[in-house]
Design a binder for these strands. Sequence first.
DNA 1: AATATATATTCTAAAAACTATATATATAGA
DNA 2: TCTATATATATAGTTTTTAGAATATATATT
Lengths: 116, 116
Amino acid sequence: MDLQADDFYSALSHPMRLRALLLLKQEGELCVCELTHALALAQPVISRHLGQLKEAGLLLSRRQGLWVYYRVSDSLPEWVTQVIQTTIAGVSTTSPYQDDRQALHAMLDRPNQTCC
Amino acid sequence: MDLQADDFYSALSHPMRLRALLLLKQEGELCVCELTHALALAQPVISRHLGQLKEAGLLLSRRQGLWVYYRVSDSLPEWVTQVIQTTIAGVSTTSPYQDDRQALHAMLDRPNQTCC
DNA sequence: AATATATATTCTAAAAACTATATATATAGA
DNA sequence: TCTATATATATAGTTTTTAGAATATATATT
């Protein structure tokens, strides 16, 4: 929407919010429990930071049954999308971002309507 | 150099540091008094934030006489440079970034070896 | 050496961000 | 309705960040 540059940058000022955003941009929709697993952090911490990213307008969410899926908004300003993509291109193969994806993929029983 | 993504983003988490970085990238070298004028903030505040940006590795500085000139480092990771340029392309004509440049250009007696 | 100017730093208090824990809400299933 | 699970929120305490004022440092000039 009318996402301001300073809101964008302060939304990403916490390492975990940056990790979550990059992971979501690369993986598409993820539920809270997947993020909790991938980032290895407590659920309330994850939920609160996701809430901040959503509040900033960077994320959208939808509930499906017990699970809430978050994804990167598809109506971001073009420059924001480019900045995110450029950041991914620059750092996605480094720690901790690469590890986050590996942890996600190593997760068993990812909720495909199944469980968490 | 080994500027980490989370250090980059937290360095820019303060609105004034973002304004200073974008202004410096667009204008080249600026001394503290020019930034103080353009951003309309107290000198110690400016100096402290510039110190943080320098500490993070985003800025370099050199002293010339009484003045200290800051500039964006020329040895940043490529993705960082791109992110900064993309941000400028996206927001430089909006407030407050446009106003900062105007205030700078409206400044009289800018130090061309002169004064401040 | 004394003075003036530009910049940096220190100190203190206030504000903001963050974590952990506990609790609340929403949904599904028995 | 009762129970279980996933997620969200509230509360309290701690840490971090920030601004403002005062002071220190560096340099140039006289």
